[in-house]
């Protein structure tokens, strides 16, 4: 419903100006600057910049380290958002049934929203510590059973478990609201048509949940990236052997530790284009499968 009630030429612009200024300074300008530095080289000892064309891209794309990092980033985005959405979906489906536990679950499942990714990283790296944590006893029985410090698979499992823990709330809230918006009559009609609960899940609930699933997928893919920094900085620092050195973390190290402004900006551009492409892909291909009829 559009309201469009007041007529005024300048007032709406004055009203939106503060937000537009903030967005310009800290959203659009940084994007533009990243593009600027991706094509320029900062001159040593400050002062001035030099246009270098595609030189920065050639340098970045020529390094194996970048490709490892980009691959790890894609893998992480897909698996982290996949695991967290699946978990939240299962929990939402369970909480949608009016059980005695549901109200408690609905409250508790959004608590992780109050915990920063870095805090939960500190906590899980302790809980999953191979020598001091809950899995330490198993390590004593079978040495090497669990060692996220050296075993890449274990490292990723640790990251995904932690990410799922942290990412449940938002996804859970959206999906549960979507499930509860499906009219009870449709379940009844389905039951009358001979469709059991399991079949109704596939034939009725999931198709009608596609708008929420779409929103959640789009947001979770971006969120898994931004949340990854807190986890990696506190849990793996990019290790073992650079296997979890995701682009977000690599850009941070290149820019703030190695002071390679142009290299970091170039990778920023690549990462932003990657995320924009994924979002675009989702809009063009996934959104077609969304049922907006209600």
């Amino acid at each position: 419903m559009k309201q469009e009630i007041f007529r005024s030429r300048w007032l709406p612009w004055w009203l939106s100006a503060p937000q537009l200024i903030v967005l310009f300074l800290f959203f659009y300008l940084p994007i533009a600057l990243a593009f600027f530095w991706a094509f320029h080289l900062e001159q040593p000892f400050g002062g001035g910049s030099e246009f270098v064309g595609l030189e920065n891209f050639r340098r970045v794309l020529g390094s194996g380290e970048f490709w490892t990092s980009a691959g790890a980033t894609l893998l992480y985005m897909i698996l982290a958002s996949g695991t967290s959405i699946t978990t939240a979906l299962i929990l939402a489906l369970a909480a949608d049934r009016a059980l005695k536990l549901s109200p408690l679950a609905r409250n508790v499942f959004i608590w992780p929203k109050a915990v920063a990714s870095a805090s939960i990283g500190v906590i899980f790296v302790f809980i999953l510590n191979p020598f001091l944590g809950i899995l330490a006893p198993l390590n004593e029985i079978w040495p090497g059973f669990w060692n996220p410090r050296t075993n890449v698979t274990h490292t990723y499992i640790m990251l995904f478990v932690t990410n799922v823990w942290n990412a449940i709330p938002f996804t859970f809230i959206i999906l549960l609201a979507g499930l509860q918006a499906i009219p009870q009559e449709l379940h009844k009609a389905g039951a009358m048509d001979g469709s059991g609960p399991w079949r109704r899940l596939w034939d009725i609930q999931l198709p009608l949940l596609t708008p929420q699933l779409f929103v959640v997928i789009v947001l979770e893919v971006a969120d898994s990236l931004s949340g990854s920094f807190g986890l990696i900085d506190t849990m793996t620092q990019g290790g073992p052997g650079g296997s979890t050195n995701l682009l977000v973390y690599k850009i941070y190290s290149d820019g703030f530790k190695a002071y390679d402004l142009s290299g970091a900006a170039t990778q920023t551009v690549i990462l932003m284009v990657l995320v924009a492409c994924i979002t675009g892909f989702q809009y063009f291909f996934l959104e077609r499968k969304v049922n907006y009829d209600r």
């Binding site: 009559e185 009844k188 009609a189 009358m192 048509d193 009608l208 049922n291």
Partner: peptide
């Protein structure tokens, strides 16, 4: 179970499956 009672029901707000065509709605059972 409802499906074994050999009955069918028409609901007040129709309760049609919004994501299925008319043919799919009718033929779902």
């Amino acid at each position: 179970e409802p499906k074994n009672r050999r009955l069918a029901m028409v609901f007040q707000n129709y309760a049609l499956y919004p994501h299925m065509t008319v043919a799919e709605n009718i033929g779902y059972a």
